[in-house]
Structures are given as structure tokens and as C-alpha cells.
Amino acid sequence: MSDLLHPTSAIRQHQGASLSRRLFLGGALGCLSTAGIAHAADDILVGPIATPTSEQTTKLIVAGSAETPCGTWASRLAPDMAEELGQPPFELAYTTGWDGVTGANLFDAQEQLSSASSTLLVPGTALLAAMTGDSRVHYAYQRWLPVLTMFQPSLVVGHVNLHRSIGAILGNRTTRVAVSTPTGPELPTLLAFDLLALRPLPVSGYATPDAAMAALTGGLVDAIQLPVDAALKDRLNMLGAKGFIPLFLNSTAPQTPAQADMALPPIFPSILLRERRTSTPAFLPLAWQALAAATSLKAALVLPLLTPPAKVARWRHAADNCATKLGIQQIALANGLTVLSGAKCITAYSMTMPDVNVGMALRRWLALNLPRWKSTTPPVRALPPALAQ
């Protein structure tokens, strides 16, 4: 009876129920749409969610073959790092070449892939190639995060008077230095002699200590560069018997892990301060420091720059534990190596990254000297049969 008396009431109730259903369905669809957009935005901003198996794909790129120092250390260091990180063994990827440029280029290419999960074990010669403007270099080592480094300084030996006398100035003599190439690992020695105004002249083709020693004792060069390794004492004894003496260390650290009974010469900065107190160029001594740090770097374990902070912290903690292991310390001490991790590792690695002005001064110095060295290269003479063996 009431519906008959009030027909508009039923219509209003029916419209209200339809409107409520439309509002509910519309709100539900809107929530679903908003959730979908938010989820898509999350995928764009943070990428796929990390899974426990993501660490299993970690690849260790070795910048060099298995016979290089980096290759040797990779086989020793990789199991310890994997154990400390709590992950399966690394997938070792060896590369060609002794200077590490090929491996560093491969690592740089891997960094461009969003799904990449790789790290790099690289020698300092790859950094040296970048400093000197090698055309093969397609990476920026300044963008790497070091977690573990191994340093081994070098020692210069010869028959050279470091004090530039009047006779030497009037004689206009050059100092012949045995090198692998003019821009090879012996570059700090060349720059050191130039800073001492001793007119260095690189003699190429002597890439091993034995070959350099044969050239020195054969009278083909005046100075050579030797690594401060386990064989240094015997080499110095043999050269000392023939009148050749240690001249200086290519290092900024006065303490080295060499044997306690060895009398090592001063570091080059001390020699430079003594001999050229008032006429030292502004940026070239800093360039020498960067070159010496790069050539002393035998191996560096580095991560990409954009590695998440949590992962960097885990890797640095694992590297700290590896650096203090007795087995690694014994091998390092026997080979004259200093293993650094943590803040010391970062500080030592930063020495290979000179200021822009220093880098420009180094490039300018090379541009001035490389043509002169090429035009005045002495003729190659064969070694005596007894020394060549």
C-alpha cells in the first residue's frame, strides 16, 4: 500500500542501489589500476627483486692469463673470497695479454649490462696504460671500487752517479735504461732519471729481470729496474760482485716487506729532495708518484662503481678477513708483497688517480720525449753467448 501511495520512493531506492554498485565497482577497478601502476613503477625504479641465486652467477674476470701474477693470485684468492662471502665458487674468466688491458675492457663492457654480476682482478699495468693514453683503453679505472690490493715496489740498480756533476753536464751524456717498452712498467724509472736531469734513454726489448740483468752486465745499458721479490737478494749479490749498486726504490713507503738482512737504498722522493732541492718541476714529481703506485700494483680486486652499498660492505668485510689469513700473508711476505684492505686499500689505490693538472703534465712530458727517444734509440747489439743463456 505504501509503494502504491509513494511510487517515487521505490524508484529512488532502486537508483540508490544501482549507484552504490557502480561506485563500488569503479572504486575497486581504480584500486586495481593504481596498484598495477605502482607495481610497474617499482619495477622500473628498483628492478627485479634479488633472489638467493643471484650471487651464484658472480664472475671473476682475471685481467691476464693463468700464467700472469693476477692469474696466479686469482686461483689462490678466489676460494677464500667465496668462502668468506658464503657463496659458491667464482666463475673464473681468464683473458689474454700480460698488461691487463683486454680484461679491463671486458669488465667495462660487462658493467654496461643491467644483469651483470662480475668483479675484476687487474694489475696496475692496466692503470698505467690508461694514464699514458694507450689507444686500446676503453675503460675508466677511476670508476672502480677497490676492496683488496697487493703492492710490490721496484728497485733501480746500475752504475750511475745520481749527483749531476759539472763533468756530466759538459759531457751531455745520456742514461741508458733497460725497458720492455718506453711506456711500460719501467716508466717511473725513466721519469725519475729525467727529474734528476740525467737524460734517460730507454732501450727496449728487456721485459724480464734476467734479460735486463744480462743487458746491464753486458754493457748495453746503465740502469735496470728489478722487482722487490724473493729473488732480489741473490740478484743484488750477483750484480754487486760486478760493481753495480742499488740506486733508489720506486716507492713512497720507506718500509718494504723485504728480508730484514737486506740493505735497500732510499726511496726516490728522498733522492730527489737531496739532489734537486730548488729546481724540481711542479707536477712531474706527483706524476712519478702516480706511475710508481700503478706499476707497484700487482693485483687489485675491484667492483663496479654502481655496486649497491650493502654488497660493497659485504665484499670489503670478506676482503678484510682474507687479507689477515695466515696462508695469504705467508705467500705475500715470501714474494715481497703488501696486502691491503679497508681504508689502507682505498688510500693506496687513490694514489694511482692523479689530479687533472698532473695527468696533463705527464701526457705533455711523454709527448716531448717519445719522439726524441725514438729518434735516438741506440742500435740493438747481441748479448755475449754466456750472458744470453
Rank of each mutant, 00 (worst) to 15 (best):
P257E: 03
A260L: 03
P309M: 13
L286F: 12
L305V: 07
F283N: 15
N335A: 11
K344S: 15
A299F: 05
W315N: 11
Q255N: 12
L303D: 02
A293C: 10
W288K: 11
L337M: 15
A292Q: 06
L306I: 03
S341N: 10
S279G: 03
A310W: 12
A292E: 04
K242F: 00
T307C: 08
Q289I: 06
A260F: 02
I267R: 09
D261L: 02
A263E: 02
T252Y: 03
A343M: 04
K242L: 05
Q255R: 12
D320V: 06
A294S: 06
P257L: 04
L291R: 09
F248Q: 01
A299W: 05
N321E: 13
T252G: 01
R314F: 12
I328Y: 04
I267M: 07
L326Y: 11
G243C: 08
L306M: 05
P308K: 14
L291A: 07
L326E: 13
L247N: 04
R277A: 15
P308R: 15
A287T: 05
A319L: 11
F244G: 00
P246G: 10
Q330I: 09
R277K: 14
L326M: 12
R274G: 01
R276E: 10
M262K: 04
Q289A: 13
A300F: 11
L284Q: 07
L306F: 03
Q329A: 05
Q259F: 01
A323D: 10
I267G: 00
L284E: 08
S296Q: 09
S341G: 10
P254M: 08
G243T: 07
W315A: 14
L305A: 15
A343G: 01
A319H: 10
T280N: 01
A293I: 07
A343K: 05
T338G: 00
A313F: 10
L337K: 10
L301W: 10
V312L: 12
A290G: 08
P309R: 14
C322N: 05
A318D: 08
L291I: 07
P254R: 14
A300N: 08
R316W: 06
A334M: 13
T338M: 08
A293S: 14
G243S: 09
P265I: 00
P257A: 05
